[in-house]
Design a protein around this nucleic acid. Sequence first.
DNA 1: AGTTTTCTGAAAGTCATTTTCATTATCTTG
DNA 2: CAAGATAATGAAAATGACTTTCAGAAAACT
Lengths: 143, 143
Amino acid sequence: MDRVAIFNDYVRKKGLKNTSQRMIILETFLNSKSHYSTEELYLKLRKKNPKIGYATVHRTLKLFAECGIAVELNFGDGQARFEPVNDEEHHDHLVCTRCGDIIEFEEPRIEEIQEEIGKRYDFKIESHRHELYGICAKCSLKK
Amino acid sequence: MDRVAIFNDYVRKKGLKNTSQRMIILETFLNSKSHYSTEELYLKLRKKNPKIGYATVHRTLKLFAECGIAVELNFGDGQARFEPVNDEEHHDHLVCTRCGDIIEFEEPRIEEIQEEIGKRYDFKIESHRHELYGICAKCSLKK
DNA sequence: AGTTTTCTGAAAGTCATTTTCATTATCTTG
DNA sequence: CAAGATAATGAAAATGACTTTCAGAAAACT
């Protein structure tokens, strides 16, 4: 089931309504390089749809997170970012503290060890965040 | 060098002043179970020292982080938390999403893999955050 | 002790986010 | 399809954590 279908299902089940704004936001959100903050997505949407309000964008992003087609990320810059979720793959992030660039990485071994840690503490892991902060290759060169 | 000495050194080097408030805050901060938010530490300090202001507590916690005797953590509840740093050991956190309890874990294998990932992307890692969210043993029992 | 400089606490200001509320749009039912 | 019920929207106000301001207080230097 693709993410649009998941969202529509969620909306139906919850008795919510399917509005044009939500569709526009969903489409733009899914068809873009990820890691949008509310502000960024709002500004982007605004260009083509000047009538969409900031609050709606924010509410809709929260809704995406709620129904599982997005995750909320926070890289310590003081604003939440949202990333479309892809069921097949899970990744974490390298965050460049100089240019703000975000690189995704996958590491199944870490996922395994996490499971192990959960068992060790009798802790039911539901989600995690794992971010590595530092200087990316480009910035290292630039000096 | 213990953390009080590190702090005093830092203050001296930077031309800052050594005030009674800072000493009180430092002592309370170090001698407590960790993971205080500014608010929590402020309320605790207030009981014995009604004259200490919120801003001072917050500024001082930031100062601790700056001089390396504390780290700032963020568990997604909208407020920063500070934890005293212990040079010898490094740990990450399990955060119970039901009761807010925080359990520390150490896992050298993950630290190693992180190094490896840094090399893979030619990325100079300076810090990281790794948190596992879920339900702790106690809360699982409570139903 | 006097001077300079940093600190402090209270209050005001920021900034992202959230809520409110009057209006509008969607959905369901008749 | 129209009417009524209900949720959604956008603008503005509110919130809450954090940050800054500023006048008086405290520390460090001379």
